[in-house]
Amino acid sequence: MKPFDDLERVHIEGTLRWLEGTDDVYRRIKPATPPQHLVSYVVVVEPDTHEVYLVDHINAGLWLPTGGHVEPGEDPAHAAARELREELGIEADFGLVGANPLFLTVTRTVGIDSGHTDVSLWYVAAAPMDSRFQLDPDEFREGRWWSPADIAAAPAGTFDPHYPRFAAKLSARLRT
């Protein structure tokens, strides 16, 4: 994965050091055992307009991509597809930018389960605007499509703190 900016480079380098020093990258006990573990995010993108579908996550109190913790022994890409099925009720179409993660972040969590670090792999799945999503009411208040203008107009603290950088990397990738 080619880093988008210096912060992603730092996150990738730190993640590689972490992977060299541990054999346990999976969350074993909620919320924070071990205190750092893998997450697969899946940003749903409308292929023509490039709007994104985000969910109002109850626990985090933020608008986030779907996704979740990678289960022990699970491949992160399989986790991304599983989370999309469980949280939105759709099958993953990774054809827009490919099946590999587009972005990597290391984030100290916020919300009810704060106090641990998520190493998040950001995947991109395509879905048309007329998709019928079946949101998990235990995890999300609601979901909606966001245009780039909607995202730019949202107050600070609305999204994952790394989302604007992800959006810029995605936009650059979709232009090529």
Rank of each mutant, 00 (worst) to 15 (best):
Leu38Val: 00
Ala99Val: 11
Asp150Trp: 11
Val10Arg: 15
Gly98Thr: 10
Pro35Ile: 10
Thr105Asn: 10
Leu96Tyr: 05
Pro155Lys: 10
Val10His: 04
Glu74Met: 04
Ala149His: 07
Leu121Trp: 09
Leu7Met: 13
Leu84Gly: 08
Val55Pro: 01
Leu174Lys: 09
Leu88Glu: 06
Ala172Met: 13
Tyr41Lys: 07
Ala32Asp: 09
Pro47Cys: 09
Ala99Lys: 13
Ala79Ser: 14
Ser171Asn: 07
Thr107Glu: 14
Tyr53Lys: 04
Ile29Asn: 05
Pro161Thr: 06
Asp24Gln: 14
Gly73Trp: 03
Leu104Ala: 00
Arg9Trp: 03
Thr66Pro: 07
Gly14Met: 02
His57Gln: 04
Thr158Arg: 02
Gly95Ala: 13
Ala149Leu: 12
Val10Pro: 00
Asp6Ile: 07
Pro155Cys: 01
Glu139Pro: 00
Asp93Thr: 05
Phe94Asn: 02
Ala79Tyr: 02
Ala77Phe: 00
Gly89Met: 07
Glu51Trp: 10
Asp5Ala: 09
Trp145Ile: 02
Pro148Gly: 03
Phe103Met: 00
Lys169Ile: 02
Asp23Cys: 07
Val124Gly: 03
Leu19Ala: 11
Trp18Ile: 11
Lys169Met: 04
Thr176Trp: 01
Phe133Ala: 09
Val106Glu: 11
Leu62Ser: 01
Trp145Tyr: 06
Val39Glu: 12
Asp48Trp: 12
Leu170Lys: 02
His11Cys: 15
Asp150Gly: 10
Ala32Ile: 01
Glu139Ser: 11
Trp18Met: 15
Asp138Cys: 00
Leu170Arg: 04
His116Arg: 09
Glu83Lys: 14
Leu64Gly: 05
Val97Trp: 03
